[in-house]
């Protein structure tokens, strides 16, 4: 078991140093770069904090849709199972087998919301989703 400070703790403090100490001292032509670095760190921070929960939830919904068990808990196996089931889902969508299927629409919406919670939580607030 790893002790803390964890990767998330390190990224958090690195971002704080960047925003509070470095950004105000950057020359104007480098400010955009500084903001992009802060944004990248915040993105990574949120992804690490969310951990495996969003992908496990996605896999749970996919597995129940396709009548499979969800024992994929190891990192490698989770990715492999997600990719396989998502490929099947994509093929079904393209073939028109899921046209108008509200359950799938809800699944895709929930999966997208989880992803945006990591990439841009402000969007969810501005759209009144959260």
């Amino acid at each position: 078991m790893r002790d803390r400070p964890s990767a998330a703790d390190l990224i958090e403090i690195a971002r704080e140093v960047l925003q509070q100490e470095l950004l105000p001292r950057l020359p104007p032509e480098l400010r955009t770069h500084g903001l992009m670095v802060a944004n990248a760190l915040a993105n990574a921070e949120r992804e690490i904090s969310a951990g495996m929960a969003p992908e496990l939830a996605e896999l749970g919904r996919l597995a129940s849709r396709y009548g499979e068990g969800t024992d994929a808990s190891g990192g490698e196996r989770l990715q492999g199972a997600l990719e396989r089931l998502n490929r099947r889902l994509v093929a079904d969508i393209r073939a028109g087998r899921l046209d108008g299927n509200r359950e799938i629409a809800r699944h895709l919406f929930a999966t997208a919301v989880d992803a945006v919670r990591e990439s841009n939580p402000k969007y969810l607030r501005s759209r009144g989703i959260e």
Partner: peptide
Amino acid sequence: SLELALTARIAPELELEALHLIR
């Protein structure tokens, strides 16, 4: 490029907005 890498991270909210608009 960091800019290109961050642009890829916009994709989820674009997908979500499209789903929202369709609704």
